[in-house]
């Protein structure tokens, strides 16, 4: 017999390398074609974002603080604004007052925290990491209450805390592009994807920082300084990076999906 005529396009490829690329490498043999484009895009984007931040962080921070103050005032929280400076730029920080804790109150806080720690140590039903996290919070509050009991006051007043938060916010803005840029440089994102990930992370952090600054001020006007160190240490800069990794993870999942359907994207070891 003789075979039928083949339509154009079904003939074997003339590209020798295509022969190997036709098969998706097993995960243990996979690697990526080394390219400086991704790294360059990440570096360039990071530098640009850092430059933009250096130029505009002060007006941005002022805008956020004013927005926070305006929203909180409308909601009836007793907050105001005052001038401060950081990295040579004039800024505005939220001002608020906190109730003062009496000795008995502090003792009760200490006892309640200790009781909570005992309960969450004995309890077995919530998953261990959750119990550890609750206990850690309680431990910090308990430590702070003890410190307050003996020292009489914390190292930070309401104003000091507000300035600290504001400065932390700005430092975090500067750190995030470098951190995210270093991470995305490792992956074969397209240049616009690299830029998008960095910009989205920074943009998201503006929002998070702004909302958090307001939330902390509102909380402290009600609770007093007892929660101050817990808020800063566990829900301060530590917290920023978790959703940033969340955004990074979403980008990675998108990238991974694209890579799995594109056999030619991979190289064999």
């Amino acid at each position: 017999m003789t075979a039928a005529q083949a339509p154009a396009g079904t003939s074997p490829s003339r590209d020798e390398a295509a022969a190997r690329r036709a098969i998706l490498p097993h995960r243990s043999y996979r690697t990526l074609p080394s390219t400086a484009t991704g790294a360059f895009a990440a570096l360039a984007c990071t530098v640009l974002v850092e430059l933009a931040l250096a130029l505009y962080f002060a007006p941005l921070a002022r805008t956020l603080t004013r927005a926070d103050a305006s929203v909180l005032q409308r909601m009836g929280f007793p907050v105001g604004l005052e001038s401060t400076a950081f990295l040579g730029k004039a800024l505005t920080a939220l001002t608020f007052t906190m109730p003062v804790h009496r000795y008995l109150e502090l003792v009760l806080w200490i006892l309640a925290c200790l009781a909570g720690i005992v309960v969450f140590t004995v309890l077995k039903s919530p998953p261990a990491p959750l119990r550890y996290f609750v206990n850690f919070n309680l431990l910090i509050v308990c430590s702070e209450a003890t410190y307050l009991l003996f020292a009489g006051h914390l190292g930070y007043s309401a104003r000091g805390f507000s300035v600290l938060m504001l400065r932390t916010m700005i430092v975090t803005w500067f750190v995030i592009p470098a951190f995210v840029g270093a991470m995305v440089a490792l992956f074969p994102f397209r240049a616009w994807e690299t830029a998008a990930v960095i910009v989205v992370c920074v943009g998201y952090d503006f929002l998070l920082e702004g909302v958090r600054y307001a939330a902390f001020a509102a909380l402290l006007t009600h609770t007093g300084p007892i929660l101050m160190s817990d808020l800063f240490l566990l829900y301060g800069p530590l917290l920023d990076i978790i959703p940033i990794i969340g955004i990074f993870a979403i980008a990675l999942a998108y990238l991974s999906r694209r890579m799995q359907t594109s056999v030619g994207a991979w190289e064999w070891l």
Partner: peptide, 13 residues
């Protein structure tokens, strides 16, 4: 206020 903060935090998660 706290809920808004938690919601913004939780969005990427």
């Amino acid at each position: 206020v706290v809920v808004v903060f938690a919601a913004v935090f939780a969005l990427p998660l």
